[in-house]
């Protein structure tokens, strides 16, 4: 692979800005006041369940859909807004499709050269490490190679931003791991703003600098992976990005009382709250008069998953080996970290 600087675009021309974008297909509202800011060589992920509007958002930025209201800007140019609609071919945005959409009647070089000159082809092929594949036809390539060609094709014209639609959904698990790293390296090397759509939280965490969680056409939270995992804005986001358990508690200044005990917190919330914990934040210790009982135990080698029960509340604990702990044993529960939500939050 060549040096990362060669395909870089001018910093001023970079960035995607969506403001209050709405889009409906008949009765179905695909996007509601959709907001997104991406700039520099950031890799941003739109993460959400199927039907949440993430692909519509991507197609809107690319110019394949027209927003009903709101504005979309690429760099300093408004490309969609009141009385403005720039067609896709004038947006300088590289799109990588879920099925790659390689032109079946063209060679690798012709595909990559579709929107670029020979120098662009050479640079892009070098960047994805496929210099020797120029004369191959798309059907002669493996899945990972096809993806790299699609990426090279999107990068070759030197786009302002690269958009990827579920880029790893057609790959098997091993290849998926490798391609996540490779694609991220390539995109960072090219230095473009990248937006990619996925329903898989692992894809998002492994690839993205910033993750935007979407649901029902709305962006619920935009944050780094760590922030998202540790400080989700709602129980739904908590559950969507990782394993979580939620139970009731009563918050006072500095601490929260629950059936499992009283734990410290720094939240401004007071009164009835929902307490969210992740299994690895929960630590059981054997105690004859412990408040909770181990009701399930699943052993994975590097760790184990325990299900603890107290007064009908169940929560999971992911811990290493705890000597002498088994199903039916009583335990005390220690909690490293917790997140509080207002009562009734979803």
């Amino acid at each position: 692979m060549t040096s990362p600087t060669e395909l870089q675009t001018e910093p001023a021309a970079r960035g995607i800005h969506c403001h209050k974008v709405n889009k409906a297909f008949g009765e179905a509202r695909a996007l509601r006041d959709f907001e997104l800011e991406a700039s520099g060589s950031t890799v941003i992920s739109l993460l959400g369940p199927s039907g949440c509007g993430k692909t519509t958002a991507l197609r809107m930025i690319a110019g394949f859909e027209r927003p009903d209201s709101g504005t979309v800007a690429i760099g300093e140019d408004i490309v969609a807004g009141p009385d403005v609609f720039i067609p896709p071919e004038e947006r300088r945005v590289g799109m990588v499709f879920q099925d790659y959409a390689l032109f079946p009647h063209m060679t690798v070089a012709q595909n990559v050269g579709y929107g670029a000159d020979e120098a662009g082809v050479a640079r892009a092929l070098a960047l994805v490490g496929l210099e020797g594949y120029r004369k191959r036809m798309p059907h002669e390539l493996s899945g990972g190679e096809q993806q790299r060609v699609a990426l090279a094709r999107a990068l070759a014209p030197g786009p302002t931003a690269v958009l990827l639609d579920e880029p790893f959904s057609n790959l098997d698990a091993t290849l998926r791991d490798r391609m996540r790293r490779e694609v991220r390296t390539i995109l960072k090397g090219a230095g473009t703003t990248t937006i990619f759509v996925t329903h898989d939280q692992e894809d998002a965490f492994a690839m993205a600098d910033v993750v935007a969680v979407m649901r029902g056409g709305e962006v619920l939270q935009v944050a780094s992976a760590i922030e998202l995992y540790r400080h989700p804005v709602s129980p739904w986001v908590a559950g969507f990005v990782g394993e979580s358990d939620v139970f009731a508690g009563t918050a006072v200044v500095g601490s929260v009382e629950t059936a499992l005990g009283t734990f410290p917190h720094a939240s401004p919330l007071r009164g009835g709250v929902l307490v969210m914990v992740r299994p690895e934040w929960v630590h059981p210790s054997p105690a004859i008069d412990g408040a909770a009982i181990v009701v399930e135990q699943e052993f994975f080698g590097h760790d184990q998953l325990l299900v603890l029960e107290l007064d009908g509340t169940r929560l999971r604990s992911r811990v290493g080996h705890v000597p002498g702990l088994g199903i039916g044993d009583r335990v005390d529960v220690g909690i490293d970290e917790l997140v509080l939500f207002p009562e009734g939050a979803t």
């Binding site: 590289g94 959409a101 579709y114 929107g115």
Partner: peptide, 12 residues
Amino acid sequence: SLEEAARGLGDN
């Protein structure tokens, strides 16, 4: 998506 890809690459 083939046609969309081509448009994204700058063709009308």
